[in-house]
Simulated assay, not measured.
Amino acid sequence: MTYDVHVRDAVNHQSIALRADLERAQPTLGAFSVAGYPDLRSGVETFVAFAQSGATVLEVGAPAVEPWRDGPVIAAAHRRALRGGDGVSTTLETVRQVSTLSDRPVITMMYWATVLAYGAKRMAQELASVGAAGCLVPDVPPAYAPAWARAAVEAGIIAPLLASRGVSLGELGAMCRSATGFIYAPAAAGQRTGYSAGVDLESLATFVGVARRVALTTPVLTGIGISIPELAASAVRRCGVAGVVIGSPLVRALTNGGLDRAIPVVERFATSMNQAWVG
């Protein structure tokens, strides 16, 4: 999909900051948690702490009734967060506070059912108004991806999209070309978040290479299956990705010990990835 130059440039300062982060040589570390987990105030504190501990991008998950792509750890966080109220309102307020308290770009992860129920244009505009840099919708149907990406960019935010290995080259190319900001390539194909049984890095590198050939200027991030810092470092070093997003290791640590346990996890991932880059 081709956008007019003035539409591509109509991005907010958070989106500009994210673009700059992705274009630098040092790898991007995205840190994920669910908005409102375990409650609104604690959730905001969590993201701010992640930023102070080495995360360069903050990914705020919108609580969903059916988070079908998430494994049990993150799914439980969705359920807990929804006890505190409406998932969209909680997400918007979390983004508003975190983008004010931190200088790190904030993106959201939101299921298509939520976007569709709220209205794509309205959702994009609301996210832009609270300071979001973008919104990753991992399950947007391919037929709707171009329209969603356009709505997002016109609102001033980016629309990263998930690149799936289980599709034809034509479908993959269309999805990658529709994505703005970055392409998200799962490290473990066909798995839910929290998967930790190993990743075929050669297969991931091959897939990343295909995605980069069909969308030459769009960075690729990976996640899902990157369960330990050493694996994140290997993905950066061997697979041609611009960075890694981690979620389940952080939510698991939060669940088992709060920020005292989660902050060191962020620090270890950041250190390992930076050492891989320097090396």
Rank of each mutant, 00 (worst) to 15 (best):
A35M: 11
V199T: 05
Y111H: 15
V140H: 06
M175W: 05
V130I: 10
L92H: 07
A163S: 13
A163L: 11
R268G: 08
P67S: 00
V95N: 04
G54R: 04
F207Y: 10
S164F: 00
V140Q: 02
F50K: 06
G279C: 14
T222P: 02
V57G: 00
A49P: 05
Q275A: 15
V60I: 12
I16T: 14
A179S: 13
V251Q: 03
A143S: 14
V208M: 08
F207V: 02
A232V: 08
R69V: 10
V220N: 01
E230H: 10
L161F: 07
R212K: 14
V278Y: 11
Q125W: 03
I246P: 01
A185P: 06
M109K: 02
R165M: 10
A75H: 07
V44W: 01
A152E: 00
R83T: 10
L127A: 06
G181K: 00
V130L: 11
P229W: 07
E66T: 08
G84R: 13
D39K: 09
R213W: 00
M110K: 02
L58R: 07
R8Q: 14
M273K: 05
I226R: 02
G119V: 09
G240Q: 08
P186M: 03
T108P: 00
T193L: 00
A174K: 13
E171A: 14
A113M: 11
A49M: 05
W68H: 15
L172F: 03
S102P: 05
G279L: 14
S196N: 13
C135Y: 04
I226P: 05
A155R: 02
I226N: 09
C176D: 08
I107F: 04
L254R: 13
V106F: 01
A17T: 07
E230K: 10
A147R: 09
A215T: 01
C239Y: 06
T180Q: 01
T217F: 00
G87Y: 03
A64G: 08
R177N: 06
L216S: 11
V245Q: 13
G131S: 07
A262I: 06
V11D: 08
E45R: 12
I183L: 06
A55D: 05
A147T: 08
D86F: 03
A188N: 07
R41A: 09
A145H: 03
A149I: 08
A253G: 12
R104K: 13
A215L: 01
G190M: 04
A163C: 12
G225D: 03
A235V: 08
L172A: 09
C239S: 12
R213F: 00
A179Q: 02
P186T: 02
A185I: 03
R19W: 12
A232N: 06
G43F: 01
T28K: 05
L259V: 12
V130Q: 12
V98A: 10
R237K: 15
A51C: 10
F207K: 05
V153S: 10
F207H: 09
G223I: 02
